[in-house]
Design a protein around this nucleic acid. Structure first.
Lengths: 134, 134
DNA sequence: CCAACTATATCGTGATACGATATAATTCAA
DNA sequence: TTGAATTATATCGTATCACGATATAGTTGG
């Protein structure tokens, strides 16, 4: 079960984590500059990426891997900030579809753009870390 | 500045995030099973991967990208749990080297082993996500 | 048509990283 | 050499956020 790990294995794991953490910090800083908490950014992205009839509270919870009631609170905060609207569904009145407001769409577009650039920039390094661990 | 992003771009970003989040959840669950908070696990890994004379509070702060005083508190908690010791240095009496206890070494070895396996398992999918964004 | 289930929401709590601040040790320049 | 600036670490109070426990409304299956 416990494979023998060398100093280099630990170093590789630590550097992989450091790279992930750098990306996380980059992302959180860009989100903060846009007036968003990290999880708010992730929620907006999940909603935008969902099919038009899939973006419910439960869907966001699944994609962010949080409890449904945590997603509910997260979406409350987005709604207060005018970034999403809850749109009642006729088919199942327990559910509401979450829609991005134009403001949120603009913010997310800018954020996604810089994130895509950053991921492109980090890609070789991340792939190298992954290879080193394989 | 704002590149045009397609539905597929948003989907690719969202799925990349979902993959990262899955890894994070995996990691946090394994850490919890070992009796560690996620950041405690990261701190132990950073300490283990450091050169024997590099593992100071400040070093941990740099590698985890947190403020030095946050690292200090984190290491306090590890020390209380008997997972690290602070070893005063003669050269600079402000600094202390952080050493893993045998217990921590064992826990970290097991954790690192399963993490390496998981990273190997996820590698193709992560590389595919990265390619899709490039 | 009621019992089980699903989707979402509310409330109180705990954990943790932070800002502001403090202290001790070190360094550097006059 | 000494004292001002800097570095390394620590303390304290606070804000945030996801969670558990629980609640409610709506839906579905026997």
């Amino acid at each position: 079960m416990t494979a023998n790990l060398t100093d280099d294995d630990y170093a590789a794991l630590a550097e992989f984590r450091f790279a992930l953490r750098q990306f996380q910090v980059f992302s959180e800083e860009r989100a903060a500059e846009a007036g968003l908490k990290p999880q708010q950014h992730q929620a907006l992205l999940a909603i935008r990426a969902a099919g038009p009839d899939d973006a419910t509270v439960g869907y966001v919870a699944q994609r962010l891997i949080v409890k449904p009631h945590s997603a509910s609170e997260l979406i409350d905060r987005l709604e207060v900030q005018g970034l999403v609207r809850r749109e009642p569904t006729q088919s199942d009145r327990r559910r509401a579809l979450i829609r991005l407001t134009p403001q949120a769409s603009r913010i997310l577009s800018d954020l996604s753009s810089v994130h895509r650039e950053e991921i492109r920039r980090l890609q070789p390094s991340l792939v190298a870390h992954l290879s080193r661990l394989t």
